[in-house]
Design a protein around this nucleic acid. Structure first.
Lengths: 236, 236
DNA sequence: CCCAACAACTTGTATATACAAGTTGATTGT
DNA sequence: ACAATCAACTTGTATATACAAGTTGTTGGG
């Protein structure tokens, strides 16, 4: 029993990439070309490509074609705050989308986290970081107003929140909680995820010598951004 | 501009699941039924279902139909050593496949990791943990022979390596490195992964009061097993 | 009562076609 | 020399259809 035709095409493409015949960013034959080569309909060739796109081997671009994906470099968990630089270092296009900037009153939980009084005003910024116009991180940040000036008036397309904060108060320490979450519908839409695609969520508190500066929730699909880092475990 | 029709169908299905109208294991309308309901072709309804299967929300079964998947519970990173218990607690079937048990001579890197002399004999065990016959973790373990007796002669289908080790030497501490990796072909086959599917790799050193007991590499597809845990960051 | 056969229904694979929409490079007019 | 236009090619969405293959319940026959 021969494998299904779309499987054969997938295997062929994988071979070409594995053997180095098709290098990173190389153009894959168009769907029409593949369908002629394998004597099948365009939809069958398309299916093969679609499934390889899902595994991250290929990347589609409407109007241009399909290409062998660039292997993502690994990023250190310690350096995610510089996600912007990391993306640029890879030669990719970085941009940021501001979702919301506002002041809110701290509820009990947030007050404890930021070590401020309950009900006091807290700055919140909600940003999406894009790599080649694809969202790679949603950043929800809650800033202790006692530590920094007019935080919300900054231009977040020029500098990251982390940079503004470290200018206002040198950061000495960071505490993390890392967990896997199932994003809700809103989040899913903002990050352009398939419904119910799980995400990595990193909760980070940054400290200066004067206390808690900010609390950030960094959410990103592991399918688009890989993480690494070194920890010593502290049981809590 | 209305979203594409297959997106509408996806949203509809997600709503039904989110709202609890369709519970776990509930039968989803057949592709034909959906295509009539949304006045579209079967292939369009099929696409919606296909993409939701990929996210793990739905499960297909040829000849029977499509069903709402059983949601996986989240597991704590601190407790992965008990992956066996966790799986059983979920009411799933746990089993273990022994790939290899042998002794090797420590090379420089391994010697440093285990804090033994270079060239000394080290026990290695290679196990695959299965949940409902699906691999959820590959465990490559290197054991310091000075800390434990005849490690390789244990019955790993009855107890986990971690349990044997903690019987021999009470574990006081653990150190982790967590990173995302791209498995090689062998690994990919052993874990039954799609080509180029990324995995989470946790490198763990466990300590007793006498020193390093073992070094383990825990590799698993995040698509099958989710992680969480609490850390304080220690910069290295 | 049991079992075999079958019909009805389901998902899996595959083809042929059509048009929309984005990109690229050549052509053409100013 | 420059800019606008356009043709050609690409992927994206969608339809209609056909048959293969697996499951389930029903219907008869023994």
């Amino acid at each position: 029993m021969a494998p299904a035709k779309f499987e054969q095409i997938k295997q062929y493409i994988c071979q070409q990439v594995d053997s180095g015949q098709w290098q990173e960013n190389a153009k894959v034959p168009s769907e029409n070309a593949l369908s002629q080569q394998f004597v099948c309909s365009r939809m069958t060739a398309r299916r093969a490509i679609t499934e390889l796109c899902e595994t991250g081997l290929l990347v589609r671009s409407q109007g241009r074609g399909t290409f062998v994906a660039t292997l993502k470099s690994q990023s250190s968990l310690m350096e995610i705050r510089n996600i912007c630089d990391e993306i640029r270092e890879r030669g990719h296009h970085y941009s940021v989308k501001v979702i919301e900037l506002k002041e809110i009153a701290a509820n009990q939980e947030l007050a404890i986290t930021l070590e401020v009084d309950e009900g006091s005003t807290v700055y919140t910024s909600s940003l999406i970081h894009l790599e080649n116009d694809l969202p790679v991180q949603l950043e929800l940040r809650y800033v202790n107003p006692n530590m920094v000036g007019k935080y919300l008036e900054n231009d977040f397309s020029k500098h990251t929140p982390h940079e503004f904060l470290s200018m206002a108060a040198p950061l000495t320490e960071a505490e993390h909680i890392i967990e896997a979450i199932m994003p809700n519908a809103t989040l899913s839409q903002q990050l352009q995820l398939a419904p119910n695609e799980p995400c990595l969520e990193i909760k980070r508190r940054t400290f200066s010598s004067k206390g808690v500066v900010s609390f950030a929730r960094l959410i990103h699909p592991s399918s688009r951004f890989r993480l690494g880092g070194r920890f010593s475990v502290t049981n809590t």
